[in-house]
Nucleic acid binder design. Sequence first.
DNA 1: TCCATAATGATATTAACTTTCATTCTCGAT
DNA 2: ATCGAGAATGAAAGTTAATATCATTATGGA
Lengths: 151, 151
Amino acid sequence: MKVNIIMDPLLLLRQSIKSRGLKDTAQREGIVRFLAGAKGHLTQEEIFKALREREPGLGRATVFRTVKLLEEIGLVTRVTFADGVARYEFAYGRPHHDHMICVTCGVALEFSSPAIERLQTRLAKARNFKVRWHRHEMFGLCARCAGKNSS
Amino acid sequence: MKVNIIMDPLLLLRQSIKSRGLKDTAQREGIVRFLAGAKGHLTQEEIFKALREREPGLGRATVFRTVKLLEEIGLVTRVTFADGVARYEFAYGRPHHDHMICVTCGVALEFSSPAIERLQTRLAKARNFKVRWHRHEMFGLCARCAGKNSS
DNA sequence: TCCATAATGATATTAACTTTCATTCTCGAT
DNA sequence: ATCGAGAATGAAAGTTAATATCATTATGGA
Ligand SMILES: [Zn+2]
Ligand SMILES: [Zn+2]
Ligand SMILES: [Zn+2]
Ligand SMILES: [Zn+2]
C-alpha cells in the first residue's frame, strides 16, 4: 500500500528555499498560492496579470524567475502546446499526466496511461537512454469542436 | 500487402504547387532538394545558412515561408525539442516516429511503437477526440552521455 | 539592530518568428 | 515570343516571449 504524505505546498516551498540558501518572499509565496488554487495551464503572462491585480508592485521578471524556481523544486510542471508558449500547471501532489489539446478552442484534456508509460520505459531501456522527463501530446479537435464542424 | 509508391519529392512539390495555384521557383526546389538529402532535424536558421552558400541571394523569409508550405504539403515534419526552437525533418516516404532527445549532447534518437500508437488512438476515441497529429518525446541522457557522468 | 547578500522590478536585450512592401519572377494567354 | 496579372522574393521592420542587467529594497542570521 502506497501512502502519499502531502505537506502544504507553502511548507515545501519554504523548506526548499531554506535548503538552497535562498530567501522567503511574499512574491514567491503569492505565486505558489495562486498556482495551487488556479487549476489549468497558465502562461507567465497570465500568471502575471492575474496576480498583478492583488499585488500591484509585482514585476514580470519575478514571475519569470519564480516559475523557473518552482519547476526546479517540482511544484509546477512546464507544458508547451502548439503555440510554443510555455505554460505552467501546479504539479505538487498530482499524478503525472499527458495532454490532448484542441487546436480550435485550446482546451487541454488530460490523460494518463500506465500502459503507455510502461512501454516508454521499455523502449528507453532498450536504447540505454535515461529518461528525465517526457511529454506526450495529441493535437486535434475535442468532441465539442469536432461536432460543430461535422457534416 | 501494402505497397508504397513514392514519387520523386520534387514531382510531389510541383504537383502540390500547381494544384494550389502557386508558382514553381528555384528557391522552393532548392530547399526541397536540400532537405531530402540532409537527414536530421534542422532549424530554419540551419537550413538558411547551409543553402545560402550555394544560393547567395536566398532570404530567411523564403526559408520561413517554404518550410511552412512544405509542412502543409506533408513533405516535412516540424519537431520541437527542449530548447523550443522549431526544427524540420524530411518526412516524405518515411514512417512516423517519435524522439528521445539527449539534454546534454542534443542527439535525437528516433523510435516507433505501434503498441503505443494503438493505445493513443484508443484513448483519443474514448474522449471523442479527433487526433490530427501528436508528439511523444522523452528527454534525458543518451547512453553516451549517461556513461560519461556515471560513477 | 546590523549588514551581507538575495530578491525585486523597471528596463534593456536577445532570439525566433512573422509581416510588410517594393521589386522580381512565373506562367498561361495571346 | 511577348505580355501582364498576380505570386514570390528578400531586405527590413515588427512582434512576441524569454532572459539579462542593474540600481534599489528586503530578508534573515549574527
Ligand atoms: Zn506520460
Ligand atoms: Zn495538465
Ligand atoms: Zn507517435
Ligand atoms: Zn526524427
